[in-house]
Design a protein around this nucleic acid. Structure first.
Lengths: 239, 239
DNA sequence: CGGGCCATTGAGTTTCTTCAACATTAGTGG
DNA sequence: CCACTAATGTTGAAGAAACTCAATGGCCCG
């Protein structure tokens, strides 16, 4: 089966550009509602059972965890600067957000006031729609990712998605000396990646090793990944 | 590991109730924009590469398919009456919607006009937000579902999610003589379920058989499932 | 320096997939 | 009405993939 050239994501939406800049005109109304919360690595960013708030990552990185019925932890989403979350009142109940790096900052917006703002200001409402659509796109990307059959494919797609998101939001933790380098800094442990992809941590490690053996990536350090061959990552499975 | 009682979804959101009724006051503005498309089983409902439209299932059932890089088909979403889709301009590119039963109807809304309506009418904008949030909740449910470890758990969670959605939208295809009966009518083949859960169709069949053996369900017909023990379905894995 | 966390690697086992055969059902046309 | 066909579902056996368990080494931090 030839690895057909799947069309990549379009350049960037207006929202993504705004996120890269860290808040723009239209955001002003919403920014007035925000309460910043700063956390250190491992701390819980927020635990909003009542679903009274919306959130937006402002700096650092975080993981959104859910406890499944059998007590196993599941990482439902990885959050980077610019990402919003907390739209889903119901489904999110029971999930907690944990900072992955020191100095992670999340902005908290009271849901009620955001709704009022949206009712009053069409411009703000438009922004919120774009935000929600971006969240949908993020979730769909992950569904496609989880649907992959084998582990190497999953990890490869994960790396590509991560690189795209770090590029989109001008991730501060990734010091890209050159735009060419295509280095991805993993903000999470192998264990977290495993929880995210529904794989055992050892399998994640082995998949990364396999990708390096095939020349798709290089692993200068456990948390640094140089992407060498995007097509090979995308194809994944091929021997 | 004790199967702790995970809080179920809250009764129903205002939107879900509206969907059950098939369109309500606030919808009026949007309904004027809709073009209904009727399809028979197996036909393509829409194939909107340009992402110029939003869609809403009105009757029947449909699957949203994506082709992954290796040419394998992936079912990204199952759609029932009331479900909206097409928010994600980028990520959806390349996915096609196919009717699962004869007489499936989807309503098509021009994205541009919907945006204009939202700008002009805060009430409509609010509806659209709720719609998007419902889609997010749907996607998150599926992510949690795909994150399950073993096949029996996945299939069990799938049945529960399906039952909830069929109940929420008053699925016409499910003639529930009694509210107690808890019968789920599978609108898809084992093969489709497999594509949805990232399992081989044979594994789906075996998982259903295993659940029946454990007394969690009954299978009067291949496409009919009586849910007998919800807790057992949720727990899934336990031997 | 010791302890803990993280990553890697190996060996054995479980689970799922694949391939195949067979049963069942529905639709079709004689 | 019946035989035929195609699609779908089930079941079995063999193989592959991923998981678990375990041991090792590196790194950071106290």
């Amino acid at each position: 089966m030839k690895p057909c050239a799947v069309p990549l994501r379009e350049p960037q939406s207006a929202l993504a550009r705004m996120n890269a800049l860290g808040g723009v005109d239209g955001m002003a109304g919403m920014d007035a509602l925000a309460t910043p919360l700063r956390r250190r690595r491992g701390e819980t960013l927020c635990d909003d059972r009542g679903a009274r708030f919306l959130y937006r990552m402002s700096a650092g990185a975080a993981r959104r965890c859910a406890l499944s019925a059998d007590g196993r932890r599941r990482i439902v989403d990885l959050l980077f600067p610019g990402d919003f979350f907390g739209f889903d009142g119901d489904a999110r109940a029971g999930s907690t957000i944990e900072a992955l790096v020191d100095g992670s900052v999340v902005l908290r917006y009271p849901r009620r006031e955001v709704e009022a703002l949206a009712d009053a200001d069409p411009q703000a409402a438009r922004i919120i729609r774009e935000i929600a659509f971006a969240a949908i796109a993020r979730l769909e990307t992950q569904i496609a990712l989880l649907g992959r059959v084998n582990a190497v494919e999953k990890v490869g797609a994960f790396l590509l998605a991560l690189e795209e998101r770090q590029r989109a939001c001008g991730q501060p933790s990734c010091e890209r000396s050159e735009i060419q380098s295509r280095r991805v800094t993993l903000p999470v442990s192998r264990c977290d990646i495993g929880d995210f992809l529904a794989l055992a941590p050892e399998t994640v490690s082995r998949s990364l090793a396999a990708l390096e053996r095939r020349g798709a990536i290089r692993l200068p350090a456990p948390r640094d990944v140089d992407i060498l061959d995007r097509a090979a990552l995308r194809a994944g499975a091929q021997r």
